[in-house]
């Protein structure tokens, strides 16, 4: 096996533990999207057009609430704003690649792909086949996401409602947030955003989510620049 193929499969393997969490997530999304009134084709296409689990969840909920389209688009943008951070983090390792590679890898740059790829670049630095690792991790996640969403759409109402599957979303996010809270500004950003989210829960169309995120970002940035 040549170096590129080896690197590709190493990426697939590195992604594997994360896929175990992604699969139930996709199932719930599929079922939730149908419940919110999306057609099966719409629900499935959102998984490749938007390809971002948390944003898809929230979009499905907002569609169910009959929120205006502009508010849904704005919410998707704010919820996915964190991908700019990942983009900045991997950019130095992709700078030598042709544009089509950059385009494909950018499309595959999700939370879970970044979790595996960021770690790989941190420990290996820039290598001649690092982009194959990225492609392997990204495609493993993409395939799992499409299949699990399709299964969720197919099973839909057949998923037992006694399973609190929707609780997997906050649990996954807890696992993602906790390792980030290493200093006071990060903790303050998380706590202030959480508190504002609770205070603004009554606002229509999850506008409180956007407000809470902005308050958290401003609070953290302010504390950090004062240090």
């Amino acid at each position: 096996m040549n170096q590129a193929a080896k690197s590709f499969w190493a990426g697939v393997r590195a992604e594997f533990p994360l896929l175990i969490g992604v699969f139930p997530f996709g199932l719930i999304y599929g079922a939730l999207a149908l419940g919110a009134g999306l057609a099966p084709l719409e629900a499935q296409m959102m998984s490749s057009i938007v390809f971002a689990g948390s944003a898809q969840f929230i979009t499905a909920q907002l569609v169910g609430d009959a929120a205006p389209g502009l508010i849904i688009v704005l919410t998707i943008a704010v919820v996915n704003l964190r991908h700019m951070l990942y983009s900045a983090a991997v950019a130095p390792y992709l700078k030598h690649l042709p544009r089509r590679w950059k385009t494909v890898l950018a499309y595959l740059l999700t939370d879970e792909a970044y979790a595996a790829v960021g770690l790989h670049y941190e420990s290996n630095g820039l290598t001649s086949t690092g982009h194959w690792f990225f492609l392997g991790a990204g495609l493993a996640l993409w395939t799992t996401w499409q299949v699990s969403c399709a299964l969720g759409i197919f099973l839909g109402a057949a998923l037992p409602s006694a399973w609190p599957l929707d609780f997997a979303l906050p649990l996954t996010f807890i696992a993602m947030v906790m390792p980030l809270l290493k200093d006071k500004p990060m903790l303050a950003a998380a706590l202030s955003a959480g508190a504002v989210a609770l205070l603004t829960q009554g606002l229509p169309f999850k506008l409180g989510l956007i407000l809470a995120a902005l308050v958290g970002i401003v609070t953290g940035t302010y504390l950090e620049s004062r240090r």
């Binding site: 948390s54 919820v79 964190r82 980030l180 809270l181 959480g194 989210a197 609770l198 970002i217 953290g220």
Partner: peptide
């Protein structure tokens, strides 16, 4: 660059908090 660092904890916590407390 500084502000971007706070995007994940802020956005994710804003989604977590209502799920737990409300």
């Amino acid at each position: 660059k500084r502000a971007l660092r706070f995007v994940p904890p802020a956005v994710l916590s804003a989604i977590i908090a209502p799920g737990l407390f409300m």
